[in-house]
């Protein structure tokens, strides 16, 4: 049995009358790559925000690396070893690419030189070295997505939460990004990713969790999930399922 890195138990949050995430239970093992999918508004990003402490859950627990981190503020959660990217990327526009990444590296060092060294390595891994001294606000979308990952990686996380890092990329760019994420995962960083590009998710993830209206409706290998009737119904509607059967 593998070691559990992240465990969500009965994780729930209500906004007024709306239950955005409803009793979410799941476990992620060390070294795994797990996909979190579901239709728009299913509560995927909200689940991320619950894990990293942007929102306080109404009920339930988040246990990371054997420690209860439920409701800790985002900067503390980051220092526990969870890095996250934002769906709408948030580069520090008036900083250069290297400086952006250095901000993350400063989590583990106070020395400018060391931070620069860590950041340079990650910058090269992410293929951004050509843009080293460019202001982040002048980057293209694919570059911004890669910078977003580089910033999170610079904090040297055990678990990386990726929120639609493939959205807005063309086919070639997606293939490159998939290879990159696979490499990151192979180097020992556990990955939980929200993604709409299913084909890419299946290429990366060994397991997929499906959310609909805040509830987990399926979990399993990509093959299991895609043949699950609940999932097909959630994505394509009742009629499709009826017509099919």
């Amino acid at each position: 049995m593998q070691k559990t890195l992240l465990e969500l138990s009965d994780l729930s949050i209500k906004f007024g009358g709306l239950t955005a995430v409803n009793k979410l239970n799941t476990k992620i093992n060390v070294g795994e790559a797990v996909g979190l999918i579901g239709p728009n508004g299913a509560g995927k990003t909200t689940a991320f925000n619950l894990i990293v402490g942007v929102y306080q859950p109404t009920a339930g627990k988040v246990v990371f690396d054997g420690e209860d981190i439920t409701g800790l503020p985002p900067h503390v959660v980051c220092r526990k070893g969870i890095g996250r990217t934002f769906q709408v990327v948030k580069p520090f526009g008036k900083m250069t690419v290297l400086q952006n990444i250095m901000v993350g590296a400063f989590v583990n060092t106070s020395k400018n030189k060391e931070a620069r060294q860590i950041a340079t390595e990650i910058m090269e891994k992410m293929g951004l070295q050509g843009k080293r001294d460019h202001l982040a606000q002048n980057l293209t979308i694919p570059e911004r997505k890669r910078l977003e990952m580089a910033k999170a990686l610079a904090t040297q996380p055990k678990l990386l939460l990726l929120d639609e890092v493939l959205a807005g990329l063309n086919q070639t760019e997606i293939e490159e990004a998939v290879q990159l994420i696979k490499t990151i995962n192979r180097e020992g960083i556990t990955i939980l990713m929200i993604e709409h590009v299913l084909q890419a998710t299946m290429a990366i993830c060994s397991r997929i969790v499906v959310l609909d209206y805040g509830k987990k409706i399926a979990e399993g290998s990509p093959q299991e999930v895609t043949s699950n009737s609940e999932v097909i119904k959630a994505y394509l509607g009742d009629e499709y399922e009826n017509a099919d059967s």
């Binding site: 985002p74 900067h75 220092r79 520090f92 526009g93 008036k94 901000v103 400018n112």
Partner: peptide
């Protein structure tokens, strides 16, 4: 480090917090 943190939080507070600031 403080200077980098200040510019980062000036540019985006949420992103800064997500990076341990």
């Amino acid at each position: 480090k403080l200077g980098y943190y200040l510019v980062a939080l000036r540019e985006d507070e949420d992103a800064a917090a997500a990076m341990g600031i």
